[in-house]
Nucleic acid binder design. Sequence first.
DNA 1: ATTCTAATTAACTATTTGGTTAAACCATGC
DNA 2: GCATGGTTTAACCAAATAGTTAATTAGAAT
Lengths: 202, 202
Amino acid sequence: MPKELDAKEKILEAAKGIFYKKGLGGARMAEIAEEAGINKAMLHYYFSSKEQLFETVFEEAFHKIIPSIISVLNSEKPIREKIEEIADFYITTLSANPQLPVFVLNAIQYDPERFLGKFMKNKQMSPQAFMGKLMQQFQQEIQEGKLPPVDPRHLIINLIGLSVFPFMMKPMLKIMMNMDDESFHDLMESRRELIPRFLLDT
Amino acid sequence: MPKELDAKEKILEAAKGIFYKKGLGGARMAEIAEEAGINKAMLHYYFSSKEQLFETVFEEAFHKIIPSIISVLNSEKPIREKIEEIADFYITTLSANPQLPVFVLNAIQYDPERFLGKFMKNKQMSPQAFMGKLMQQFQQEIQEGKLPPVDPRHLIINLIGLSVFPFMMKPMLKIMMNMDDESFHDLMESRRELIPRFLLDT
DNA sequence: ATTCTAATTAACTATTTGGTTAAACCATGC
DNA sequence: GCATGGTTTAACCAAATAGTTAATTAGAAT
């Protein structure tokens, strides 16, 4: 009986598309059902409520862009490598799915408690402990002269901002800079090496 | 008869708060009316529909963050100054209103045609012509050795990203980096000079 | 005072929406 | 066969929602 997964998958795919675009409040269950090519009652067969369906979609999106970079930052590699990997990861992930970050940030803005609560607990490491360890690594590598002496907090913010923000601005950038999808893609590709170089080469 | 402006202003203020948080679909007209301390029918007395009210709020938000930087970029100052002014402008504006960029980008993601259309026309200069002029200035200043030889497109993307993105991430950053509002504010203040230095000093 | 117009409200309506129900469908094991 | 269990559907329902109406208030002009 492979039908269950089939239908559930179709629902999630449709829900993703519509929630990404319209958010929790703007999406209609009937619309999701239609997009998935099934009956409206089927949604409630697999997902008890709109909220639950949304949370499922959100969790998938969130896990696509947050835990990955935490595990990279949490690894034993040198900072340089971590930075390269993260920029690389975001450019790959967001090239395939540019709406992801606006969707996630919007949900968080809508109800921070709810959509960041999981993030706090869920992790194997508390954000604080994890950041502490990372700060230590920064200090050490700076002392060893492997890194320019910058505030690690700024470096991380800059790294993520430089990697993620262009995709959020994609529609506007395409207009302002007169680009089509292909030239936008090329511009993002060139950032794979630009970002680490920019962040680390004084 | 100053009551008209009073009521209209109260409505817009309430609508802003609720649309910023919940978006077009998530906001309820009754909720906005209550928040404004007036009757639901008053909304439709001053604004014909929910959509029109939303567009009014959107337009105000949009004009708060886009035309300002265009007019700076469009001025006759040297690039260095333009960059300093824009970073400064965003940090001031978004410190007072961190939800602004997520709100605007979300609306654009929801219906790009509709919410970027105005941007295209409305301007005194077409984005293309305007960018063309700017690119020329970049080339010239680079030739004169006043600027490091970087791709101007990347420079602009980086400038806006470094200035705006931290405010979008504010809730997450506060948790990850264990900051309260005050220390977040301090961190952002330090970016006023960090961003131009970072962008321009090779 | 009276008229006129803009502001304001309570009550109402038509529609949309999330969610339910009870019956039908269909594969599998016996 | 047929009983069983998960799957799917059409029809239905109650609540919520954007928008309307028609009546009321209050202030200004005459």
